[in-house]
C-alpha cells in the first residue's frame, strides 16, 4: 500500500514536471555551443615551442605555460534576457568567508583553457536555441567556488588540482585565473634567457568579458563561436625586461597584477568566421 502510494506520488511529480516545461523551449530545442578560443600574440598565433619568440612591448619573449579559467558563461538573447545554464553538479569541501569547513555544490560549466597544450576548442554546454546578441564570461573563478579544496575534486574535472601545470596555489586558497610564463631576452641577443611568470588570481582580480555579437543557435545544430585571446594585450602595460615586473604571483606584485587584470576585458575579441 505504502509502495503504491509512493508510485502515485512519483507519477504525479513527473506529470507536473512535464506540464511545467516552457513550450517555447520544447519548440526550439537546444544547441551545443563550442568556444574556439584562439591564442594570439598580437597578429601571430601563440605557440609554446621554445623557438617561437614574440616581440611584446619591446621585449623578446617565449611562452612556457598559457592557461586560464573561464566560468559563468552567460548569453544575452534578442529580448535582452540573460541566459545561463547549469551543468552536472559537483559537491566538494570548501571554506566559507569565516574559514569554516563547508560543503559547496558547483553547477557551473567551468573551462580550464590549456593553450600551452594546443587545445583551443572547449565545450560550453547545451543552450536554448534562439537569437543572441552577446556573450559574457568571467576570467577566473568567483565566490565560494574559488575557496573549494582542489585536492578533493575528481581528476577529470577542470577544477581538480592538475598534476602537470599548477592551477591552484599551495600557499593560498584559490585558483590561478590566468597563468602565463616563459623566458624573456634580457641581454639583447634576441634569445630569451630569463624566466618571466605572471600568475593572476584572488577575488579582486576576477574580471568579466563581454562581447557583442549577433548569432543564432538552431535546434540540435552544434554551434561555434571564434574568440581570439591576445596575450600581447594582457601584457600591454607590463615591461618584462624590468626585473621588478617579470615575476608576479599576484600578492607579491600587486602593480603588475593590476596592470594585467585591467587588460583582460580588451584581450578577447569575437573573430568573424
Amino acid at each position: 500500500m505504502k509502495y503504491s502510494k509512493n508510485l502515485m506520488m512519483v507519477a504525479a511529480i513527473i506529470i507536473v514536471a512535464f506540464a511545467g516545461c516552457d513550450s517555447s523551449v520544447m519548440e526550439h530545442g537546444n544547441a551545443n555551443l563550442t568556444l574556439n578560443l584562439k591564442p594570439r600574440v598580437g597578429g601571430e598565433a601563440l605557440s609554446t615551442n621554445p623557438d617561437s619568440t614574440y616581440d611584446v612591448n619591446g621585449a623578446k619573449i617565449s611562452f612556457g605555460s598559457a592557461r586560464m579559467y573561464i566560468s559563468e558563461i552567460t548569453l544575452i538573447n534578442d529580448e535582452n534576457e540573460s541566459i545561463t545554464i547549469s551543468n552536472e553538479s559537483l559537491t566538494v569541501p570548501a571554506k566559507n568567508d569565516s574559514d569554516e569547513n563547508i560543503s559547496h555544490t558547483i553547477q557551473d560549466q567551468v573551462i580550464l583553457v590549456k593553450h600551452d597544450e594546443g587545445i583551443n576548442s572547449y565545450d560550453a554546454g547545451s543552450w536554448p536555441a534562439g537569437d543572441y546578441q552577446e556573450i559574457r564570461f568571467k576570467v577566473g573563478i568567483s565566490g565560494t567556488t574559488n575557496r573549494i579544496d582542489p585536492s578533493q575534486v575528481p581528476a577529470q574535472h577542470p577544477l581538480a588540482k592538475q598534476a602537470d601545470v599548477n592551477n591552484h596555489w599551495n600557499w593560498n586558497a584559490g585558483y590561478l585565473f590566468l597563468r602565463m610564463d616563459g623566458l624573456v631576452d634580457t641581454d639583447d641577443d634576441a634569445v630569451p634567457d630569463e624566466k618571466w611568470a605572471i600568475h593572476l588570481g584572488t577575488p579582486r582580480f576576477l574580471r568579466e568579458v563581454s562581447l557583442k555579437h549577433d548569432f543564432t543557435l538552431e535546434n540540435e545544430k552544434p554551434a561555434m563561436l571564434d574568440i581570439s585571446v591576445n596575450y600581447a594585450e594582457f601584457l600591454r602595460n607590463v615591461d618584462l625586461k624590468d626585473p621588478d615586473e617579470r615575476i608576479c604571483h599576484t600578492m607579491n606584485n600587486l602593480p603588475v597584477a593590476t596592470a594585467v587584470a585591467d587588460q583582460i576585458s580588451s584581450s578577447y575579441q569575437i573573430e568573424d568566421r
Binding site: P93, D99, N101, D149, S151, H168, N170, W171, N172, A173
Partner: peptide, 11 residues
C-alpha cells in the same frame, strides 16, 4: 595559507 589538511600536502 593552506585551507585543509588534504590541500596542505601539495605544499
Amino acid at each position: 595559507g593552506s585551507i585543509t589538511l588534504e590541500h596542505q600536502i601539495f605544499g
